[in-house]
Design a protein around this nucleic acid. Structure first.
Lengths: 248, 248
DNA sequence: TCCTCGCCTTGATCTCGATCAATTACATCC
DNA sequence: GGATGTAATTGATCGAGATCAAGGCGAGGA
């Protein structure tokens, strides 16, 4: 049950479970058929560019598997990640012809794509799809605002701890596991990509990871696998309110 | 024409022009009546708190006049602004009962409020309202991503220049004026609020403002009024791509 | 087994913005 | 006009994180 948790058991169509969760949780069968008619899959290898800022984007997509990143680059090469797309996240903006950001595959990625024009028509004719997209976009905006606090006000150590907490949280929700005292997960990003996420240099990321390890907050199994023996201790390092305040 | 530009001339109902632009640009008269039935105005004075994070919010609203800010505060007092709401911006999240951020009036503010439960019902029954909200939310997400680049990678001087450019741009669009070589506008924020916006201290904000003034990039008329003699020169200070690339 | 190439870690030094501390400008009120 | 209080400016110093510079580690290939 935990491993196959992405399957949406009460949906008839099961070959693209993520899509239903993402944009069509309430679709009736005729709408599913419409989606099927305009959908296609694309795979990208780790490191590949999915689109450059300014490129024509004739599709929108759901991430089915893997991780993609949205980044902005300044002329002199300074880079900031502005979006991190994990499975079930949505990529692209209906109504926008070209990509506004560079989109790259951080790991091997599978996208479930929908032709943009057709998708746009679907939105206009299927109210609950735009309501669902609105909910998803509002969630993303909340995530962006949490991210802004991290970028603007947190120390390097707090940034790393917050990032690990965010990844752990997303990882747990993808695996459908509840709250636990200890956690274990893979980092979906290189040190350099973490630096781009957090507004740091890769050296600082590395140093702070080492410091958290030295202080027993995390353990490293290889370079990419993290064990958090005490989630509370990690949360204490984030600088966030401890009362787990989630406002529904 | 330029001054009264907020009026939406082809709308019959004119007592709340912003509302129509914000959530109901395509409303037919019966929908306008529904909106009228659940709307009411609230005024707040500069500095007043509209809601604390966690407070029950039984309304959503359009900003009619003035400026409001969303901020997050850490236990030790570090503060980060995560949203700046100018006239025609939307406040609150349908489907969310309590405020996720502190909301404060940065200047005297007039809100056009809609009872949340009724507004939610309206969304579900009026497709183009949720489509309009989706567009607005996507715009806000784009703004948040531009903001993230500023917070994560720009120098103090670039942050100030970028902020001035953003305010100038919004000011020009509120006044419906097109591109011009020189600009003149009021700052809607104190130096401290600018610091909270930009992830700086108020001293650094003040110093960089002085430096931009010394270098002739801006002129100060009093403490809050900015004159930009050469918009190109200001843009050069932002660190952004110069080719004004806007992707529709 | 050794080589190579990415990715990561660690060290030494420097710099930009934070911090601490006065002053100054300006509006309001008596 | 002088007193008061808030917002802004300016100066002196400090420190977290950037920068520059070597090394280390592990996977894949000859």
């Amino acid at each position: 049950m935990p491993n196959n948790s992405l399957a949406v058991s009460d949906m008839a169509c099961s070959d693209c479970p993520i899509r239903h969760r993402a944009v069509c949780a309430r679709c009736e069968s005729d709408e599913l058929e419409r989606l099927d008619a305009i959908k296609y899959y694309r795979r990208f290898e780790a490191g590949q560019t999915i689109a450059w800022a300014g490129d024509k984007m004739d599709f929108v997509a759901s991430v089915v598997e893997g991780v993609a990143a949205l980044t902005q680059t300044m002329e002199d090469g300074r880079r900031q990640m502005v979006g991190l797309l994990l499975p079930s996240d949505f990529l692209g903006r209906p109504n926008r012809e070209s990509a506004a950001y560079d989109v790259t595959a951080t790991s091997d990625v599978t996208l479930c794509c929908f032709r943009r024009a057709s998708f746009q028509a679907l939105i206009e004719e299927t109210p609950h799809v735009s309501q669902r997209l609105l909910e998803m976009t509002l969630d993303e905006l909340d995530a962006a605002r949490e991210w802004m606090l991290i970028l603007g006000r947190k120390t390097a150590r707090e940034k790393i701890a917050s990032f690990l907490a965010i990844i752990a949280r997303r990882d747990a929700s993808l695996k459908n596991v509840g709250a636990a005292a200890s956690l274990s997960f893979d980092l979906p990003l290189t040190r350099e990509a973490m630096a781009d996420y957090l507004g740091l240099t890769l050296e600082t990321v590395s140093r702070q990871m080492s410091a958290l390890k030295r202080d027993g907050v995390i353990e490293l199994r290889g370079k990419r696998h993290i064990v958090v023996p005490d989630v509370e201790a990690l949360m204490d390092e984030t600088g966030d309110d401890t009362d787990g305040g989630v406002y529904s």
